[in-house]
Design a protein around this nucleic acid. Structure first.
Lengths: 154, 154
DNA sequence: GCTGAAATTGGTTCGTG
DNA sequence: CACGAACCAATTTCAGC
């Protein structure tokens, strides 16, 4: 993971359809050497997948909510976690520090869908004590582009 | 945006490197018809970009924090929003309902980097009154794959 | 490990039903 | 609007440095 790999990963996050010729220029290498680098980044698991980045509104899920959840202590949370993983509308689920147990990121079509999710999916889970819904009024920024740290050894 | 487009967008989110031959099978169309569909989805802005999906740990930003921020009312928040957009570590910034003004999603290398971000970038912004940091202990789920709504007209 | 050219597997573009 | 074949540009492979 040298400086060249860093440049490649940054470029491929911005535009993965650019092609090796374009990529070779930013890497400062030949086309074949660049292809080799990309293949190694895939093998090492740095690049996990190639994805189409969709517009949430066009995809039919314009509503974005973050939900703070408190789960009763001492309970086995495996069932809760499995249920969150299974739900397609749940984009993220993190166990967090502080007063709350989990923070969810959920994308939905409309408010009735939110109502249904809160009642049928979330509050239906055993152990769920407290729920607070934070509705996104405006999204200032939303990206999946990670800040690749410079100069990480092997 | 019919059922075929839905299948295509779902498949391309899961694996954008599959190729048109593979994609044509899940779409139930010929290769050229599938290519036409994909091109139209790009033109209509449903597909915004093609990206390499990186592993956050391998990319050197294993620390994930969500930060709730209260900004003094009546202030012009343009400067704050611009600053958040400029920061590469800030993956998301949403204006939200409830007691807080903004919710941030931030990825960092380590705790010193978090300390630096809170002091130099966030609290340094004029108007910032209250900050609460929610550190992710464990990530149960984190995906960028959107739940594409079925049967959305035009 | 990188280079550059040959070989091959794609995607793209046409005419046709 | 979808199909199939020919075209063309891409990636992949390989010998040499």
């Amino acid at each position: 993971m040298d400086e060249i790999d860093r440049n490649i990963t940054v470029a491929l996050q911005l535009d993965g359809s650019a092609g090796l010729a374009e990529l070779a220029k930013v890497a400062g290498l030949s086309v074949s050497a660049t292809a080799e680098r990309v293949k190694r980044l895939e093998e090492r698991g740095v690049i996990r997948a190639w994805r189409a980045d969709l517009d949430p509104v066009a995809a039919g899920c314009p509503l974005l909510v973050h939900i703070l959840v408190t789960v009763a202590p001492g309970r086995d949370e495996t069932a809760f976690r499995m249920a969150m993983r299974r739900q397609e509308t749940v984009l993220e689920c993190h166990a967090i520090t502080g007063d709350w147990t989990y923070l969810l990121k959920v994308r939905l079509a409309d408010l009735p869908a939110l109502d249904a999710f809160l009642n049928d999916e979330l509050r239906a889970q055993s152990g769920v004590q407290r729920v607070e819904t934070l509705l996104a009024i405006a999204t200032v920024k939303e990206t999946s582009i990670l800040p690749v740290a410079p100069a990480t050894e092997e």
